[in-house]
Deep mutational scan, measured.
Amino acid sequence: SNREKAKQAFKELLRDKAVPSNASWEQAMKMVVTDPRYSALPKLSEKKQAFNAYKAQRE
């Protein structure tokens, strides 16, 4: 689905920018907000969900 693709793109973005798994949401956003993939997930709640999944995978 498109939403799954968007989630993957967002997680790839976090990986590409080397966002550490112990980063806070605010720290992570400063690192990725300028990338076009930041807008892949329109809802903030979805971004946070993908971010938390990313962190869980990295730990």
Rank of each mutant, 00 (worst) to 15 (best):
V19M: 07
A56V: 12
K43Y: 01
W25P: 09
Q49W: 02
Y38M: 02
M29I: 09
L41H: 01
R37E: 04
Q49D: 14
A28I: 02
Y38A: 07
Y38Q: 08
S45K: 11
N22E: 14
S39Y: 08
A50G: 04
P20Y: 02
L13S: 07
E4P: 03
R37W: 00
R15L: 11
Q49I: 07
W25C: 11
N2Y: 00
P20L: 02
V32Q: 05
N2Q: 14
F51L: 04
A56I: 08
A23N: 07
K30D: 05
L44W: 03
R3F: 08
E46I: 00
E12T: 07
D16C: 00
S45E: 13
S45Y: 00
F51W: 02
K48R: 09
V19N: 02
L41R: 03
N2D: 14
M29S: 11
K30L: 05
E12R: 02
S24G: 06
R58G: 14
A18I: 03
N22Y: 03
L44T: 07
K17C: 06
A56H: 11
R37Y: 00
E46D: 14
R15S: 09
M31I: 10
N52G: 08
N52L: 13
K11F: 14
R15Q: 12
M29G: 09
L13D: 08
A53E: 15
S21A: 15
E59I: 12
S21L: 15
A53H: 04
D16A: 04
L13T: 04
P42K: 11
P42I: 08
V33M: 15
E59W: 03
Q49F: 02
Q57C: 10
E59C: 09
N2C: 03
S1Q: 03
T34G: 15
K48G: 01
A40Y: 06
L13V: 03
R58A: 15
P42C: 03
N52A: 12
M29K: 15
A53G: 08
K5G: 10
F10M: 05
S24L: 02
Q49P: 03
L44C: 06
F10K: 07
A6S: 10
N22P: 01
A50F: 04
K48H: 07
A56L: 14
K48E: 07
S21E: 12
K47W: 01
Q49V: 09
A23F: 06
Q57H: 10
F10H: 11
N52R: 12
E46A: 04
K17S: 06
M31N: 06
N52Q: 14
Q8V: 10
F51G: 08
Q8M: 05
V32S: 07
K17W: 04
N52V: 11
L44R: 06
K48F: 05
N2H: 00
